[in-house]
Design a protein around this nucleic acid. Structure first.
Lengths: 252, 252
DNA sequence: CGTTCCATTGAGATGTGTCAATTCAAGTGG
DNA sequence: CCACTTGAATTGACACATCTCAATGGAACG
Protein backbone atom coordinates (compact mmCIF):
# COMPACT_ATOMS: atom_id res chain seq x y z
CA UNK A 1 0.00 0.00 0.00
CA UNK A 2 2.13 2.90 1.22
CA UNK A 3 4.87 2.11 -1.23
CA UNK A 4 6.68 4.35 -3.63
CA UNK A 5 5.29 7.26 -5.55
CA UNK A 6 7.31 7.64 -8.69
CA UNK A 7 7.35 11.38 -8.84
CA UNK A 8 10.61 12.74 -7.52
CA UNK A 9 10.47 15.54 -5.04
CA UNK A 10 13.18 17.15 -3.03
CA UNK A 11 12.56 17.44 0.65
CA UNK A 12 13.84 20.24 2.81
CA UNK A 13 15.14 18.44 5.86
CA UNK A 14 16.78 15.88 3.68
CA UNK A 15 18.98 18.38 1.87
CA UNK A 16 22.36 17.48 3.44
CA UNK A 17 22.59 14.64 0.98
CA UNK A 18 21.55 16.69 -1.99
CA UNK A 19 21.64 14.10 -4.72
CA UNK A 20 19.49 14.19 -7.74
CA UNK A 21 16.80 11.65 -7.02
CA UNK A 22 16.95 10.52 -10.60
CA UNK A 23 20.48 9.38 -10.08
CA UNK A 24 21.23 6.07 -11.76
CA UNK A 25 23.18 3.03 -10.55
CA UNK A 26 26.28 3.85 -12.57
CA UNK A 27 26.76 7.13 -10.80
CA UNK A 28 25.44 6.09 -7.38
CA UNK A 29 28.24 6.22 -4.87
CA UNK A 30 26.87 3.04 -3.27
CA UNK A 31 27.14 0.89 -6.37
CA UNK A 32 30.07 -1.00 -4.93
CA UNK A 33 27.91 -2.23 -2.05
CA UNK A 34 24.57 -2.66 -3.67
CA UNK A 35 23.07 -4.85 -6.36
CA UNK A 36 25.29 -3.60 -9.22
CA UNK A 37 28.29 -4.92 -7.30
CA UNK A 38 28.99 -7.84 -9.57
CA UNK A 39 27.83 -6.41 -12.87
CA UNK A 40 29.46 -5.14 -16.02
CA UNK A 41 28.61 -1.59 -16.95
CA UNK A 42 26.37 -2.73 -19.76
CA UNK A 43 24.44 -4.95 -17.38
CA UNK A 44 24.17 -2.12 -14.89
CA UNK A 45 22.38 -0.09 -17.53
CA UNK A 46 19.79 -2.83 -17.94
CA UNK A 47 19.33 -3.09 -14.20
CA UNK A 48 18.98 0.65 -14.04
CA UNK A 49 16.03 0.56 -16.34
CA UNK A 50 13.91 -1.61 -14.09
CA UNK A 51 14.64 0.32 -10.92
CA UNK A 52 12.08 2.82 -9.74
CA UNK A 53 13.22 5.73 -7.64
CA UNK A 54 10.51 7.36 -5.61
CA UNK A 55 10.29 10.30 -3.36
CA UNK A 56 11.98 9.87 0.00
CA UNK A 57 10.17 8.25 2.86
CA UNK A 58 9.63 10.45 5.90
CA UNK A 59 10.45 9.25 9.39
CA UNK A 60 7.86 6.72 10.50
CA UNK A 61 6.46 6.08 7.03
CA UNK A 62 6.04 2.51 5.87
CA UNK A 63 7.91 1.06 2.94
CA UNK A 64 5.71 -2.01 3.15
CA UNK A 65 3.58 -3.74 5.74
CA UNK A 66 3.33 -7.31 6.87
CA UNK A 67 0.73 -8.95 4.67
CA UNK A 68 1.14 -6.56 1.74
CA UNK A 69 1.40 -8.22 -1.62
CA UNK A 70 5.02 -8.78 -2.49
CA UNK A 71 6.05 -6.95 -5.63
CA UNK A 72 9.52 -5.56 -5.14
CA UNK A 73 12.65 -5.67 -3.12
CA UNK A 74 14.18 -2.38 -2.05
CA UNK A 75 17.65 -0.90 -1.84
CA UNK A 76 18.34 1.84 0.68
CA UNK A 77 20.02 4.85 -0.89
CA UNK A 78 20.05 7.08 2.15
CA UNK A 79 18.60 7.00 5.65
CA UNK A 80 17.85 3.96 7.76
CA UNK A 81 14.91 1.59 8.03
CA UNK A 82 13.84 -1.02 10.51
CA UNK A 83 12.09 -4.24 9.61
CA UNK A 84 9.87 -5.90 12.16
CA UNK A 85 7.27 -8.58 12.60
CA UNK A 86 4.20 -8.26 14.77
CA UNK A 87 3.52 -11.32 16.88
CA UNK A 88 0.05 -12.74 17.31
CA UNK A 89 -0.33 -11.05 20.65
CA UNK A 90 0.54 -7.67 19.23
CA UNK A 91 4.14 -7.29 20.30
CA UNK A 92 6.82 -6.24 17.87
CA UNK A 93 10.01 -8.00 16.99
CA UNK A 94 12.57 -5.92 15.15
CA UNK A 95 14.34 -8.26 12.75
CA UNK A 96 16.84 -5.88 11.25
CA UNK A 97 18.09 -2.38 10.59
CA UNK A 98 18.91 -1.42 7.02
CA UNK A 99 21.53 1.16 6.07
CA UNK A 100 22.40 2.69 2.67
CA UNK A 101 23.53 0.11 0.15
CA UNK A 102 21.57 -2.69 1.81
CA UNK A 103 18.65 -4.60 0.37
CA UNK A 104 15.44 -5.47 2.15
CA UNK A 105 12.10 -7.09 1.45
CA UNK A 106 13.37 -10.50 0.38
CA UNK A 107 11.37 -12.29 3.04
CA UNK A 108 8.29 -11.65 0.95
CA UNK A 109 9.22 -13.92 -1.93
CA UNK A 110 8.19 -17.24 -0.46
CA UNK A 111 4.53 -16.39 0.06
CA UNK A 112 4.16 -13.52 -2.37
CA UNK A 113 3.43 -11.47 0.70
CA UNK A 114 5.65 -9.44 2.95
CA UNK A 115 6.41 -11.37 6.12
CA UNK A 116 7.44 -8.25 7.97
CA UNK A 117 6.88 -4.52 7.94
CA UNK A 118 9.50 -1.92 7.14
CA UNK A 119 9.47 1.73 8.11
CA UNK A 120 11.83 4.63 7.97
CA UNK A 121 13.71 5.59 11.13
CA UNK A 122 14.62 8.88 9.48
CA UNK A 123 14.08 10.39 6.07
CA UNK A 124 15.17 7.74 3.59
CA UNK A 125 15.59 7.47 -0.16
CA UNK A 126 14.78 4.10 -1.64
CA UNK A 127 15.31 2.31 -4.94
CA UNK A 128 12.44 -0.02 -5.71
CA UNK A 129 13.30 -3.10 -7.73
CA UNK A 130 10.24 -4.87 -9.15
CA UNK A 131 10.78 -8.53 -8.53
CA UNK A 132 9.36 -9.99 -11.70
CA UNK A 133 11.65 -7.75 -13.72
CA UNK A 134 14.55 -8.76 -11.53
CA UNK A 135 13.70 -12.41 -12.09
CA UNK A 136 13.57 -12.01 -15.84
CA UNK A 137 16.78 -10.07 -15.90
CA UNK A 138 18.44 -12.67 -13.67
CA UNK A 139 17.57 -15.47 -16.04
CA UNK A 140 19.55 -13.78 -18.80
CA UNK A 141 22.29 -12.41 -16.61
CA UNK A 142 24.07 -15.15 -14.68
CA UNK A 143 26.11 -12.77 -12.56
CA UNK A 144 22.97 -10.98 -11.42
CA UNK A 145 21.24 -14.25 -10.58
CA UNK A 146 24.27 -15.36 -8.64
CA UNK A 147 24.54 -12.05 -6.87
CA UNK A 148 20.93 -12.07 -5.84
CA UNK A 149 21.21 -15.62 -4.53
CA UNK A 150 24.24 -14.43 -2.61
CA UNK A 151 22.32 -11.50 -1.14
CA UNK A 152 19.59 -13.76 0.14
CA UNK A 153 22.15 -16.14 1.49
CA UNK A 154 23.80 -13.27 3.31
CA UNK A 155 20.48 -12.36 4.86
CA UNK A 156 20.28 -15.93 6.15
CA UNK A 157 23.76 -15.93 7.64
CA UNK A 158 23.09 -12.59 9.28
CA UNK A 159 19.88 -13.85 10.79
CA UNK A 160 21.83 -16.81 12.11
CA UNK A 161 24.32 -14.47 13.69
CA UNK A 162 21.48 -12.71 15.46
CA UNK A 163 20.04 -16.06 16.54
CA UNK A 164 23.35 -16.96 18.14
CA UNK A 165 23.58 -13.57 19.76
CA UNK A 166 20.12 -13.85 21.29
CA UNK A 167 20.61 -17.40 22.33
CA UNK A 168 24.04 -17.29 23.88
CA UNK A 169 25.15 -13.80 24.76
CA UNK A 170 24.70 -11.47 27.68
CA UNK A 171 23.20 -8.01 27.44
CA UNK A 172 26.65 -6.41 27.28
CA UNK A 173 27.76 -8.71 24.52
CA UNK A 174 24.63 -8.05 22.50
CA UNK A 175 25.03 -4.30 22.69
CA UNK A 176 28.71 -4.56 21.88
CA UNK A 177 27.91 -6.71 18.85
CA UNK A 178 25.37 -4.22 17.58
CA UNK A 179 27.74 -1.30 18.02
CA UNK A 180 30.39 -3.25 16.17
CA UNK A 181 27.99 -4.13 13.39
CA UNK A 182 27.00 -0.52 12.89
CA UNK A 183 30.62 0.52 13.04
CA UNK A 184 31.59 -2.01 10.37
CA UNK A 185 28.75 -1.02 8.10
CA UNK A 186 29.68 2.62 8.49
CA UNK A 187 33.25 1.86 7.56
CA UNK A 188 32.10 0.13 4.39
CA UNK A 189 30.46 3.37 3.40
CA UNK A 190 33.64 5.29 4.17
CA UNK A 191 32.13 6.84 7.27
CA UNK A 192 33.70 6.90 10.69
CA UNK A 193 33.92 3.51 12.32
CA UNK A 194 34.13 5.03 15.78
CA UNK A 195 31.80 7.99 15.82
CA UNK A 196 28.22 7.90 14.66
CA UNK A 197 24.65 8.75 15.45
CA UNK A 198 22.27 5.91 16.21
CA UNK A 199 19.25 6.26 13.96
CA UNK A 200 17.09 4.05 16.16
CA UNK A 201 15.60 4.52 19.62
CA UNK A 202 16.55 2.59 22.72
CA UNK A 203 13.22 0.79 22.43
CA UNK A 204 14.14 -0.44 18.96
CA UNK A 205 17.58 -1.51 20.10
CA UNK A 206 16.14 -3.41 23.04
CA UNK A 207 13.48 -4.95 20.88
CA UNK A 208 16.02 -6.06 18.29
CA UNK A 209 18.38 -7.53 20.90
CA UNK A 210 15.74 -9.10 23.11
CA UNK A 211 16.33 -6.71 25.99
CA UNK A 212 14.25 -4.12 27.79
CA UNK A 213 14.91 -0.42 27.32
CA UNK A 214 16.13 -0.19 30.88
CA UNK A 215 18.74 -2.85 30.34
CA UNK A 216 19.94 -1.18 27.15
CA UNK A 217 20.30 2.06 29.02
CA UNK A 218 22.14 0.46 31.90
CA UNK A 219 24.56 -1.29 29.58
CA UNK A 220 25.35 1.98 27.83
CA UNK A 221 25.97 3.64 31.18
CA UNK A 222 28.15 0.78 32.31
CA UNK A 223 30.24 0.86 29.15
CA UNK A 224 30.59 4.58 29.46
CA UNK A 225 31.84 4.19 33.00
CA UNK A 226 34.36 1.64 31.75
CA UNK A 227 35.62 4.09 29.09
CA UNK A 228 34.71 1.75 26.27
CA UNK A 229 32.06 4.01 24.81
CA UNK A 230 31.08 7.61 25.02
CA UNK A 231 27.32 7.90 24.92
CA UNK A 232 25.47 11.15 24.52
CA UNK A 233 21.91 10.26 23.80
CA UNK A 234 22.08 8.92 20.23
CA UNK A 235 25.62 10.05 19.60
CA UNK A 236 28.05 7.21 20.09
CA UNK A 237 31.79 7.29 20.16
CA UNK A 238 33.66 4.03 20.42
CA UNK A 239 36.69 4.76 22.58
CA UNK A 240 38.11 1.28 22.70
CA UNK A 241 37.29 -0.62 19.54
CA UNK A 242 39.36 -3.65 20.50
CA UNK A 243 37.49 -3.92 23.75
CA UNK A 244 34.17 -3.70 21.95
CA UNK A 245 35.35 -6.39 19.58
CA UNK A 246 36.43 -8.57 22.48
CA UNK A 247 33.10 -8.08 24.23
CA UNK A 248 31.07 -8.73 21.11
CA UNK A 249 33.10 -11.82 20.47
CA UNK A 250 31.48 -12.50 17.14
CA UNK A 251 33.49 -12.68 13.93
CA UNK A 252 31.48 -10.02 12.09
CA UNK B 1 34.97 -32.73 2.82
CA UNK B 2 32.90 -35.53 4.30
CA UNK B 3 30.24 -35.09 1.66
CA UNK B 4 28.58 -37.63 -0.53
CA UNK B 5 30.09 -40.74 -2.04
CA UNK B 6 28.23 -41.42 -5.22
CA UNK B 7 28.21 -45.16 -5.01
CA UNK B 8 24.89 -46.41 -3.68
CA UNK B 9 24.96 -48.90 -0.91
CA UNK B 10 22.22 -50.29 1.23
CA UNK B 11 22.82 -50.10 4.90
CA UNK B 12 21.52 -52.65 7.34
CA UNK B 13 20.18 -50.51 10.14
CA UNK B 14 18.57 -48.21 7.68
CA UNK B 15 16.40 -50.91 6.12
CA UNK B 16 13.02 -49.86 7.59
CA UNK B 17 12.78 -47.31 4.81
CA UNK B 18 13.85 -49.69 2.12
CA UNK B 19 13.84 -47.43 -0.91
CA UNK B 20 16.09 -47.89 -3.83
CA UNK B 21 18.78 -45.27 -3.33
CA UNK B 22 18.74 -44.62 -7.04
CA UNK B 23 15.17 -43.44 -6.78
CA UNK B 24 14.44 -40.36 -8.88
CA UNK B 25 12.48 -37.24 -8.15
CA UNK B 26 9.44 -38.31 -10.14
CA UNK B 27 8.89 -41.33 -7.99
CA UNK B 28 10.08 -39.85 -4.69
CA UNK B 29 7.22 -39.66 -2.27
CA UNK B 30 8.54 -36.30 -1.05
CA UNK B 31 8.38 -34.57 -4.40
CA UNK B 32 5.40 -32.52 -3.33
CA UNK B 33 7.47 -30.93 -0.55
CA UNK B 34 10.87 -30.70 -2.10
CA UNK B 35 12.46 -28.87 -4.99
CA UNK B 36 10.34 -30.48 -7.77
CA UNK B 37 7.28 -28.92 -6.14
CA UNK B 38 6.67 -26.31 -8.79
CA UNK B 39 7.95 -28.15 -11.82
CA UNK B 40 6.43 -29.80 -14.86
CA UNK B 41 7.31 -33.45 -15.30
CA UNK B 42 9.65 -32.68 -18.14
CA UNK B 43 11.48 -30.18 -15.99
CA UNK B 44 11.65 -32.66 -13.16
CA UNK B 45 13.53 -35.01 -15.45
CA UNK B 46 16.15 -32.34 -16.10
CA UNK B 47 16.46 -31.61 -12.41
CA UNK B 48 16.79 -35.30 -11.76
CA UNK B 49 19.83 -35.49 -13.93
CA UNK B 50 21.87 -33.06 -11.90
CA UNK B 51 21.01 -34.56 -8.53
CA UNK B 52 23.52 -36.88 -6.95
CA UNK B 53 22.31 -39.48 -4.53
CA UNK B 54 24.95 -40.85 -2.24
CA UNK B 55 25.06 -43.50 0.37
CA UNK B 56 23.27 -42.65 3.60
CA UNK B 57 24.99 -40.66 6.29
CA UNK B 58 25.40 -42.45 9.61
CA UNK B 59 24.48 -40.81 12.88
CA UNK B 60 27.02 -38.14 13.74
CA UNK B 61 28.55 -37.95 10.27
CA UNK B 62 29.00 -34.56 8.66
CA UNK B 63 27.23 -33.51 5.50
CA UNK B 64 29.44 -30.43 5.41
CA UNK B 65 31.46 -28.38 7.82
CA UNK B 66 31.69 -24.69 8.50
CA UNK B 67 34.37 -23.34 6.20
CA UNK B 68 34.06 -26.08 3.58
CA UNK B 69 33.92 -24.88 0.04
CA UNK B 70 30.33 -24.44 -1.02
CA UNK B 71 29.41 -26.66 -3.93
CA UNK B 72 25.92 -27.98 -3.40
CA UNK B 73 22.73 -27.64 -1.53
CA UNK B 74 21.16 -30.76 -0.10
CA UNK B 75 17.68 -32.22 0.17
CA UNK B 76 16.90 -34.60 2.99
CA UNK B 77 15.29 -37.79 1.80
CA UNK B 78 15.13 -39.62 5.11
CA UNK B 79 16.45 -39.10 8.61
CA UNK B 80 17.14 -35.80 10.33
CA UNK B 81 20.06 -33.40 10.40
CA UNK B 82 21.05 -30.49 12.54
CA UNK B 83 22.85 -27.40 11.30
CA UNK B 84 24.96 -25.41 13.68
CA UNK B 85 27.56 -22.69 13.88
CA UNK B 86 30.55 -22.73 16.18
CA UNK B 87 31.17 -19.42 17.90
CA UNK B 88 34.63 -17.94 18.25
CA UNK B 89 34.88 -19.17 21.80
CA UNK B 90 34.05 -22.72 20.80
CA UNK B 91 30.43 -22.98 21.79
CA UNK B 92 27.82 -24.32 19.40
CA UNK B 93 24.65 -22.70 18.20
CA UNK B 94 22.16 -25.03 16.56
CA UNK B 95 20.47 -23.02 13.81
CA UNK B 96 18.04 -25.59 12.53
CA UNK B 97 16.80 -29.14 12.29
CA UNK B 98 16.11 -30.57 8.86
CA UNK B 99 13.52 -33.25 8.15
CA UNK B 100 12.76 -35.20 4.96
CA UNK B 101 11.72 -32.98 2.08
CA UNK B 102 13.63 -29.99 3.44
CA UNK B 103 16.60 -28.27 1.85
CA UNK B 104 19.76 -27.16 3.61
CA UNK B 105 23.11 -25.64 2.83
CA UNK B 106 21.88 -22.41 1.29
CA UNK B 107 23.79 -20.28 3.77
CA UNK B 108 26.96 -21.16 1.89
CA UNK B 109 26.13 -19.28 -1.28
CA UNK B 110 27.11 -15.78 -0.21
CA UNK B 111 30.74 -16.56 0.53
CA UNK B 112 31.21 -19.72 -1.49
CA UNK B 113 31.82 -21.34 1.84
CA UNK B 114 29.52 -23.07 4.26
CA UNK B 115 28.65 -20.76 7.13
CA UNK B 116 27.53 -23.63 9.33
CA UNK B 117 28.11 -27.33 9.79
CA UNK B 118 25.51 -30.01 9.24
CA UNK B 119 25.50 -33.51 10.68
CA UNK B 120 23.14 -36.42 10.82
CA UNK B 121 21.16 -36.96 14.02
CA UNK B 122 20.30 -40.44 12.78
CA UNK B 123 20.96 -42.38 9.60
CA UNK B 124 19.97 -40.08 6.78
CA UNK B 125 19.67 -40.29 3.00
CA UNK B 126 20.52 -37.14 1.12
CA UNK B 127 20.14 -35.78 -2.39
CA UNK B 128 23.02 -33.56 -3.34
CA UNK B 129 22.23 -30.76 -5.77
CA UNK B 130 25.34 -29.19 -7.31
CA UNK B 131 24.78 -25.49 -7.18
CA UNK B 132 26.35 -24.44 -10.46
CA UNK B 133 24.11 -26.93 -12.26
CA UNK B 134 21.14 -25.65 -10.34
CA UNK B 135 22.01 -22.09 -11.32
CA UNK B 136 22.29 -22.97 -14.99
CA UNK B 137 19.07 -24.90 -14.90
CA UNK B 138 17.34 -22.04 -13.08
CA UNK B 139 18.30 -19.56 -15.77
CA UNK B 140 16.41 -21.58 -18.34
CA UNK B 141 13.57 -22.67 -16.12
CA UNK B 142 11.74 -19.71 -14.59
CA UNK B 143 9.63 -21.82 -12.28
CA UNK B 144 12.72 -23.44 -10.80
CA UNK B 145 14.41 -20.09 -10.33
CA UNK B 146 11.32 -18.73 -8.67
CA UNK B 147 10.98 -21.79 -6.48
CA UNK B 148 14.55 -21.65 -5.34
CA UNK B 149 14.24 -17.96 -4.52
CA UNK B 150 11.15 -18.90 -2.56
CA UNK B 151 12.99 -21.62 -0.65
CA UNK B 152 15.69 -19.20 0.41
CA UNK B 153 13.08 -16.67 1.35
CA UNK B 154 11.36 -19.28 3.48
CA UNK B 155 14.62 -19.98 5.25
CA UNK B 156 14.79 -16.28 6.07
CA UNK B 157 11.26 -16.10 7.43
CA UNK B 158 11.86 -19.19 9.51
CA UNK B 159 15.02 -17.75 10.95
CA UNK B 160 13.05 -14.64 11.81
CA UNK B 161 10.49 -16.75 13.59
CA UNK B 162 13.26 -18.25 15.66
CA UNK B 163 14.67 -14.80 16.36
CA UNK B 164 11.31 -13.72 17.70
CA UNK B 165 11.03 -16.87 19.76
CA UNK B 166 14.43 -16.37 21.34
CA UNK B 167 13.91 -12.71 21.90
CA UNK B 168 10.42 -12.64 23.32
CA UNK B 169 9.28 -15.99 24.60
CA UNK B 170 9.62 -17.93 27.83
CA UNK B 171 11.13 -21.38 28.08
CA UNK B 172 7.67 -22.98 28.02
CA UNK B 173 6.67 -21.07 24.94
CA UNK B 174 9.86 -21.99 23.14
CA UNK B 175 9.46 -25.69 23.81
CA UNK B 176 5.81 -25.56 22.84
CA UNK B 177 6.72 -23.81 19.59
CA UNK B 178 9.31 -26.44 18.74
CA UNK B 179 6.91 -29.29 19.46
CA UNK B 180 4.33 -27.60 17.29
CA UNK B 181 6.82 -27.09 14.50
CA UNK B 182 7.83 -30.73 14.51
CA UNK B 183 4.20 -31.75 14.68
CA UNK B 184 3.33 -29.60 11.67
CA UNK B 185 6.25 -30.84 9.64
CA UNK B 186 5.30 -34.41 10.46
CA UNK B 187 1.77 -33.79 9.32
CA UNK B 188 3.02 -32.47 5.98
CA UNK B 189 4.69 -35.80 5.47
CA UNK B 190 1.50 -37.63 6.36
CA UNK B 191 2.88 -38.76 9.70
CA UNK B 192 1.22 -38.39 13.06
CA UNK B 193 0.94 -34.83 14.24
CA UNK B 194 0.60 -35.90 17.85
CA UNK B 195 2.92 -38.80 18.36
CA UNK B 196 6.54 -38.86 17.33
CA UNK B 197 10.07 -39.59 18.34
CA UNK B 198 12.42 -36.65 18.81
CA UNK B 199 15.51 -37.28 16.72
CA UNK B 200 17.60 -34.79 18.69
CA UNK B 201 18.96 -34.81 22.22
CA UNK B 202 17.92 -32.50 25.02
CA UNK B 203 21.24 -30.75 24.62
CA UNK B 204 20.44 -29.98 20.99
CA UNK B 205 16.96 -28.77 21.86
CA UNK B 206 18.32 -26.51 24.57
CA UNK B 207 21.04 -25.25 22.32
CA UNK B 208 18.60 -24.48 19.53
CA UNK B 209 16.17 -22.70 21.84
CA UNK B 210 18.72 -20.86 23.92
CA UNK B 211 18.04 -22.84 27.07
CA UNK B 212 20.04 -25.18 29.28
CA UNK B 213 19.41 -28.91 29.28
CA UNK B 214 18.06 -28.66 32.78
CA UNK B 215 15.47 -26.10 31.80
CA UNK B 216 14.38 -28.19 28.82
CA UNK B 217 13.96 -31.15 31.09
CA UNK B 218 12.01 -29.17 33.67
CA UNK B 219 9.69 -27.76 31.04
CA UNK B 220 8.95 -31.25 29.72
CA UNK B 221 8.22 -32.45 33.24
CA UNK B 222 5.99 -29.46 33.91
CA UNK B 223 4.03 -29.98 30.70
CA UNK B 224 3.66 -33.62 31.49
CA UNK B 225 2.27 -32.79 34.91
CA UNK B 226 -0.20 -30.44 33.22
CA UNK B 227 -1.34 -33.21 30.88
CA UNK B 228 -0.33 -31.26 27.81
CA UNK B 229 2.38 -33.68 26.75
CA UNK B 230 3.33 -37.23 27.47
CA UNK B 231 7.10 -37.53 27.54
CA UNK B 232 8.96 -40.80 27.62
CA UNK B 233 12.56 -39.99 26.90
CA UNK B 234 12.49 -39.13 23.19
CA UNK B 235 8.97 -40.35 22.60
CA UNK B 236 6.54 -37.46 22.63
CA UNK B 237 2.79 -37.55 22.58
CA UNK B 238 0.92 -34.29 22.35
CA UNK B 239 -2.18 -34.74 24.47
CA UNK B 240 -3.61 -31.28 24.08
CA UNK B 241 -2.67 -29.80 20.72
CA UNK B 242 -4.78 -26.69 21.20
CA UNK B 243 -3.03 -25.98 24.45
CA UNK B 244 0.37 -26.42 22.82
CA UNK B 245 -0.73 -24.06 20.08
CA UNK B 246 -1.91 -21.52 22.62
CA UNK B 247 1.33 -21.79 24.55
CA UNK B 248 3.49 -21.53 21.45
CA UNK B 249 1.49 -18.53 20.34
CA UNK B 250 3.21 -18.30 17.00
CA UNK B 251 1.32 -18.53 13.74
CA UNK B 252 3.41 -21.36 12.33
C1' DC C 1 7.00 27.37 28.64
C1' DG C 2 4.41 23.52 28.95
C1' DT C 3 3.66 19.03 26.87
C1' DT C 4 5.21 14.85 25.27
C1' DC C 5 8.25 11.46 24.34
C1' DC C 6 12.48 9.24 25.32
C1' DA C 7 16.20 7.97 28.33
C1' DT C 8 18.16 7.12 32.81
C1' DT C 9 18.38 5.31 37.45
C1' DG C 10 16.89 2.69 41.56
C1' DA C 11 14.80 -1.14 44.27
C1' DG C 12 12.79 -5.35 44.36
C1' DA C 13 10.83 -9.66 41.94
C1' DT C 14 11.57 -13.69 39.11
C1' DG C 15 12.85 -16.97 35.49
C1' DT C 16 16.54 -19.30 34.10
C1' DG C 17 21.34 -20.61 34.80
C1' DT C 18 24.83 -23.00 37.66
C1' DC C 19 26.39 -26.66 40.41
C1' DA C 20 25.77 -31.12 42.20
C1' DA C 21 23.64 -35.47 42.99
C1' DT C 22 20.84 -39.24 41.23
C1' DT C 23 18.54 -42.07 37.95
C1' DC C 24 18.08 -44.20 33.64
C1' DA C 25 19.39 -46.30 29.09
C1' DA C 26 22.53 -48.31 26.09
C1' DG C 27 26.20 -50.47 25.07
C1' DT C 28 30.72 -53.38 26.07
C1' DG C 29 33.52 -56.90 27.70
C1' DG C 30 34.21 -60.61 30.86
C1' DC D 1 23.82 -62.91 31.11
C1' DC D 2 25.58 -59.87 34.32
C1' DA D 3 28.69 -56.27 36.06
C1' DC D 4 30.76 -52.20 34.37
C1' DT D 5 31.19 -48.10 31.93
C1' DT D 6 29.49 -44.21 29.63
C1' DG D 7 26.49 -40.71 28.19
C1' DA D 8 21.80 -38.70 28.55
C1' DA D 9 18.09 -37.09 31.33
C1' DT D 10 16.00 -35.72 35.56
C1' DT D 11 15.60 -33.29 39.92
C1' DG D 12 16.88 -30.12 43.70
C1' DA D 13 18.98 -25.98 45.96
C1' DC D 14 20.86 -21.73 45.28
C1' DA D 15 22.74 -17.66 42.60
C1' DC D 16 22.36 -14.05 39.52
C1' DA D 17 21.22 -11.46 35.29
C1' DT D 18 17.59 -9.34 33.54
C1' DC D 19 12.77 -7.87 33.99
C1' DT D 20 9.20 -5.17 36.29
C1' DC D 21 7.52 -1.28 38.44
C1' DA D 22 8.18 3.40 39.69
C1' DA D 23 10.24 7.83 39.87
C1' DT D 24 13.12 11.28 37.83
C1' DG D 25 15.60 13.72 34.32
C1' DG D 26 16.31 15.59 29.76
C1' DA D 27 15.47 16.73 24.87
C1' DA D 28 12.44 18.11 21.21
C1' DC D 29 8.62 20.63 19.61
C1' DG D 30 4.69 23.37 19.24
Amino acid sequence: MASQVTQPQVDGEFKPCAHDYQINCSSCRLNSLCLPLALESDDVRQLDEIIQRGKPLQKGEYLYREGDEFRSVYAVRSGTLKAYKTTDDGREQVTGFYFPGEILGMDGISNNMHASSARALETAAICEIPFTSLEKLSASMPSLQRHFFALMSREITEDQLLITLLSKNSADERIAALMLSISTRNARRKLSATKFRLPMSRVDIGNYLGLTVETVSRVFSRMQKMDILRVDNKEIEILDLDNVRALANVSS
